[in-house]
């Protein structure tokens, strides 16, 4: 296993009956990289992400995540990744500290580790006085930032972020990206999907899925050159409009 490649995928494929959701995709993600995973609804992003998170077995092809094989070591993968989405993040009816205790416990951290990390995160987010408050009483922006901190609470090698900033105000959205930059600088690899094309610019590299395939993969500036576009929005539209299938 190579230490600097956190994800490797080779001809990774998933079929449901005669429908090929993910069609022979190949790519690698380096340690500490912010990797944008874009595609229209129905392009196969979620299916691909589920395979990489060890939640769904591929039909064919190879892939490793954090050095573990997606077929044989999916339980190890789950322990070594973090996950956050806009839909599923924290438990509203637990306090901030209880959420951290719960996630830390799930990932097998010791009481002391959980305690130290809780203090550290609350301080870092300037939420020291909110630790015993129910999550549902916090403003949405705080919740999203807290959810990200909890997703990387157990210091995973890689964190999967599925539309983490949907519906968030423009100021909080940017604060959230500052946290992503910080985590990447600390060596955590970021795998992120988004519908905001300006956020695609914040990624080191971006892949764009169309009809189950990866049709483009490069740095944002190179993609704009290749597709003679002035923005990532334009790149995305040029590629996604080629899609022939229409499903979710």
């Amino acid at each position: 296993m190579s230490t600097d490649k956190v994800i490797t995928a080779e001809q990774l494929t998933k079929r449901f009956g005669d429908f090929t959701a993910v069609d022979h995709i190949s790519f690698e993600v380096q340690k500490g990289e912010i990797f944008g995973f874009l595609g229209a609804n129905g392009a196969g992003k979620t299916t691909a992400m589920r395979m990489l998170c060890g939640l769904s077995l591929p039909t064919s092809g190879k892939a490793t995540v954090a050095g573990f094989d997606v077929y044989k070591e999916n339980e190890k993968i789950k322990k070594n990744i973090g996950y956050m989405s806009q839909k599923f993040s924290l438990y509203d009816d637990l306090t901030v500290k209880e959420n951290m205790r719960f996630y830390g416990g799930i990932y097998g951290m010791s009481d002391k580790q959980i305690k130290d990390k809780t203090v550290f995160i609350l301080k870092h987010l300037h939420l020291e006085s909110e630790g015993n408050k129910l999550v549902k009483s916090l403003p949405l922006g705080w919740k999203q930032k807290l959810a990200f901190s909890v997703a990387i609470f157990h210091e995973p090698e890689i964190v999967f972020l599925d539309e983490p900033t949907g519906g968030v105000d423009p100021v909080t959205r940017r604060e959230f990206w500052n946290m992503i930059y910080q985590a990447a600088a600390d060596g955590i690899t970021i795998f992120v999907t988004t519908h905001y094309m300006d956020e695609a610019e914040y990624c080191n590299r971006v892949s764009i899925m169309v009809d189950g395939r990866i049709d483009a993969l490069d740095t944002p500036s190179q993609l704009k050159k290749t597709y003679e576009a002035t923005s990532m929005d334009e790149v995305f539209l040029k590629l996604a409009r080629k899609a022939v299938r229409n499903a979710d």
Binding site: G39, N41, E163, G166, H195, D233, L237, A240, R241
Partner: peptide, 13 residues
Amino acid sequence: DEPTTGVDAVSRK
């Protein structure tokens, strides 16, 4: 009410 939330850029257009 938020007809385009979670919808990709092409479908939104």
